[in-house]
Design a protein around this nucleic acid. Sequence first.
DNA 1: CTGAACTAGTTCAATAATGAACTAAGTCGT
DNA 2: ACGACTTAGTTCATTATTGAACTAGTTCAG
Lengths: 138, 138
Amino acid sequence: MPVDVAELWTLNHRLLTGVMNACSAELTSLGVETKEFFVLTEVTASPYPAELAATLMIPKASVSVYVRSLVAKGFMRREIDDADLRRHRLVLTAEGEAVRDRALAALSTEFDRRLARITPRDRTELRRILLTLAAPAP
Amino acid sequence: MPVDVAELWTLNHRLLTGVMNACSAELTSLGVETKEFFVLTEVTASPYPAELAATLMIPKASVSVYVRSLVAKGFMRREIDDADLRRHRLVLTAEGEAVRDRALAALSTEFDRRLARITPRDRTELRRILLTLAAPAP
DNA sequence: CTGAACTAGTTCAATAATGAACTAAGTCGT
DNA sequence: ACGACTTAGTTCATTATTGAACTAGTTCAG
């Protein structure tokens, strides 16, 4: 059976959108937008805007917007990087970490509702396969 | 090992965006936008705007926009549904089918480059798992 | 019948996303 | 230590997306 790109895309899109929609009320009450949420979860691993844009594969102009908003809400702050004055090191505030964790928990609950449909072994498989596929082109 | 929602989302996003980016030149030369492409591939299975909006999980206002553009380009046409005069049955033109197939081929080539990293059995697994996860909430 | 409630699709005004141009800082020749 | 090139980040003008209001057709209870 051939694996059809468009089908996989649609499935992925449905999965992610479905989970997101189910949690949007929760995220809204935490005061965080969908795109901002992904910045919140990645910023510790990739603490500079350019790095975030690269890992999350979103335009850096968009990262600017999300970071500005997150800073305005008090979820993170910019620090000048002593080693390279062009760079803004992004640091989560305590509130930012709390919101990230609560949002992650809400998403996980909904996602687990779906993951419950498949076996634990399948979950590990899925992660392994996606890790391989999503790696940058060689 | 816990499966982290945000991680899966990021992986998915990277995979799909990466494949799309690699093909954007091809799609552009075929005269079709990314979102429009998914409408093109789904319209045979879901020939009405409202149905498309539901399966693709995009707002119906957006479907309106994409369909308008695809019709303007001569890739599909609207027919009034005899059974329900409110409905627009969408039909691909010969050119629309040709473009869909060529776009699908381009995407598949790029996607296969990535799928080549995993075994055929894993591909089937992936599809099976996503089918289960992406089904509408019970 | 009638009209209230519903559904398909569109339009439009408002919002969100982003390419391109820009500023500032860093690096590397020579 | 200079100029040419590269990189980080922002800004802004433009385009893309979409919620909400709307039109038109359908359904169905009374």
